[in-house]
Design a protein around this nucleic acid. Structure first.
Lengths: 217, 217
DNA sequence: GTTTGTATCAAACGATCGTTTTAAAGTCAA
DNA sequence: TTGACTTTAAAACGATCGTTTGATACAAAC
């Protein structure tokens, strides 16, 4: 194994372990020593490869979180396009499907949403990255899609609130995974996740459906 | 000022400042020195009055969070009782009203929801306290109220999911305050908060309304 | 006036933090 | 084989962490 390959592997192991630990415990609760121990490398590796702990955190978003978010958005796009009809309901269903089942493993999904939730509650420099490169374009696209189902020039703000509420619900059932399990007594097996998709779709339809052409109010 | 009074004041200042800092930055990101500096008392005061930093955190929930949650629930109960008719819609409206406007100052509300969000994402011993003493009884009461509007013996799980989704939405718009402002460009003034209550009520009605007797599906 | 108990204080404890240094091990080109 | 360069390693840096100690101030009890 060449040094360059070893280098790359070490760097990637650090990114993986760092992301898992940051998602699980938060930035301050994780030490560089924990990360390097989990990645089976030397303590100094973080500062050698990333310059600082803070920059490793940012790189986790640049190299892991943002690409994964793009994969999620792609999955959503394809799932939505595959629906035989398009309406606010199918938008909601596709979103729930992508974010709660989708292409990610359970562990990956929870990492993803926990990191997002931490940045939502206490934005750092990483939030700028995520907001500009991922959230804004995706929300903009969603809004354009949904706008075609509503009367013209009406309720741009309402549209935004509904989109945010959908994300809120989806995010909640991922990042509060453990708490939901403890409150409801239900495990997150395939059946329950499918049930959640159904629920979130239905729950979201009113907000979106209220802006559907000719929908009953 | 007697020692006992001085003691009490110090202890309460510690609880106040600790809660604010824990909510704002999280447990690990706050040092005992920061807390005692903010409370204008000696470093040793935390261990003298509370035994440890960890126990101070727990005491924040016992002495501050839980009582405030009870005030919120009382406010909800009175607001709901004051409605001239009762339906899933008025339940949703009362919840949004209590949690987004209600009896709390903006700062208090954000503290409250940020602490809750942190425990939801990463439950500690404090979550047991909150779940048993606050969440379970409140959710149980809500479920009983809502059950009277739905067909018998149907959708107990659906009821739970809808209640959780309502809390998810309400929580989101409080704890992600800063992020929502940066994404939407809207400040959380009185007008926007009233708009949020209206939105959340409407957004939640489908899930709850779907179980309303004779509701249109 | 002495004792008792409570609260606060400065100071220091050992442990751990993020980071830096210095040396060693390795590959690759010349 | 030499020299340049990249990566890993052990050790130590100063700073800060949560906690403990011992002294001091002071009101209340006797």
């Amino acid at each position: 194994m060449t040094p360059k390959e070893k280098h790359d592997f070490t760097k990637e192991r650090l990114l993986n372990e760092a992301e898992a630990l940051f998602a699980q415990k938060g930035y301050d609760a994780v030490s560089v020593r924990q990360i390097t121990a989990a990645a089976h490398c030397n303590l100094a590796a973080v500062n050698y490869h990333f310059g600082s702990k803070q920059n490793l955190y940012l790189e986790v978003f640049r190299a892991r979180w943002v690409p994964r978010a793009r994969r999620l958005q792609e999955y959503f796009g394809k799932f939505f396009a595959a629906q035989d009809s398009h309406s606010p309901t199918t938008v909601a269903k596709s979103l729930a499907e992508a974010f709660l089942i989708g292409p990610l493993s359970d562990e990956e999904r929870q990492r993803h949403h926990q990191l997002m939730a931490r940045e939502l509650g206490q934005p750092t420099e990483a939030f700028e990255l995520v907001a500009e490169q991922v959230m804004r374009p995706f929300i903009k696209g969603l809004a354009e899609t949904l706008r075609s189902f509503m009367p013209e020039g009406q309720g741009e703000e309402r549209l935004m609130l509904n989109i945010l509420s959908m994300f809120a619900t989806v995010l909640y059932f991922s990042f509060a995974h453990m708490a939901v399990t403890r409150i409801t007594g239900r495990e997150y097996d395939a059946a329950f996740k499918a049930r959640l998709v159904e629920h979130i779709t239905e729950f979201s339809v009113k907000g979106l459906g209220g802006i559907e052409k000719g929908a009953l109010l």
